[in-house]
Design a protein around this nucleic acid. Structure first.
Lengths: 174, 174
DNA sequence: AGTCTCATGTAACCGGTTACATGATTCA
DNA sequence: TGAATCATGTAACCGGTTACATGAGACT
């Protein structure tokens, strides 16, 4: 089976806001999107080519100065469809990149019922994970002794619990 | 330039605790280490082979039952050296995996002065990042208006700030 | 006897990073 | 005119995922 290709959804999400060039898209990863995803132009340009072949996006040319012609990409109906389908899908929780955050970035005030569903799903999944982490803590560090001899491991677990707790608190504010 | 190959350091860190088979190492990523890193056996076995060729580790054979022979890997002096050198290096902050967490896991109570240095470094870097995020918030969402029309983006940024704040608080407890 | 876990490997593929390469536009 | 930025592409490589493949040991 193929891998996720989440970068494609980010590109679609950005083009869904407005038409952009490959350069514009690359820039977006240096600022906003850069907080939670990164991509280089060497990955963007071939991807745009592939997505255009698949009819998810198209491009129109924009004359700049006397010689330079920019390619500005636009999302097409097929692209909009797979982007919206992706938004509706459940988000994977245990991946190295947070898929929920990714989707949340593209949610605007037009979809309150979807947002509510997504947040409820995340709350449930994150609460389960927190419970699992708390169980790990009880199993592995029941007393002060182990906390000293495996101090690093103890700290890492404490951090995971703290992070998850913070995540849940944040979810509740959405 | 080559990429980081942090998996190699995890393998060295685990073998530095005790001799293990490829299977044991793989299992470690399903439990403990799994909280912050993942690896499949298809990645472990070729890596062990490569690391043995580079004289970082060696293996001895262990007879199990009548036919099965396990390969149990041991860290060698070259391996210990590059592992300890890595622990001393500054940790990259803006990577998709948290390198500081990785190192912390392997720190035991024998290196208090190194731990102190690492924590101070992280505190400084994380504080800078938090300040940057706060600046972003001031720039992009100065008033209620933008927070509504780009609600998802606002939430993501709020989360980044919350996460960073929590991280700093946790660092202070180490 | 059959199923689950232990145990070790390879191959194909994908996503991402680094480096190579070129040229136009803008602004000081 | 020279430097910084805009703009677009390709190639080599690496790390990680999925799938293919095989067999032994433990336990019911």
């Amino acid at each position: 089976m193929a891998q996720k290709n989440r970068l494609q959804y980010i590109v679609l999400g950005l083009l869904n806001i407005e038409s952009r060039t490959g350069y514009d898209l690359t820039k977006a990863f240096d600022s906003d999107i850069g907080e939670f995803w990164s991509a280089n132009h060497s990955q963007i340009y071939p991807l745009l080519k592939k997505m255009e072949q698949e009819n998810l996006i198209s491009h129109h040319e924009v004359q700049v100065g006397t010689k330079l012609v920019k390619k500005s990409y636009d999302i097409m109906s097929d692209g909009k469809k797979i982007f919206n389908d992706w938004l509706e899908e459940p988000s994977e929780i245990d991946s190295s990149h947070d898929e929920f955050i990714l989707k949340l970035y593209f949610i605007d005030d037009k979809k309150p019922e979807l947002l509510e569903k997504m947040v409820a799903e995340q709350l449930s999944a994150r609460s389960d994970k927190l419970e699992h982490l708390n169980q790990q803590m009880r199993d592995k560090f029941p007393d002060q002794d182990k906390r000293q001899t495996q101090y690093g491991h103890y700290c890492v677990l404490k951090h995971a619990i703290s992070r998850e707790t913070d995540y849940i608190e944040w979810l509740k504010t959405i």
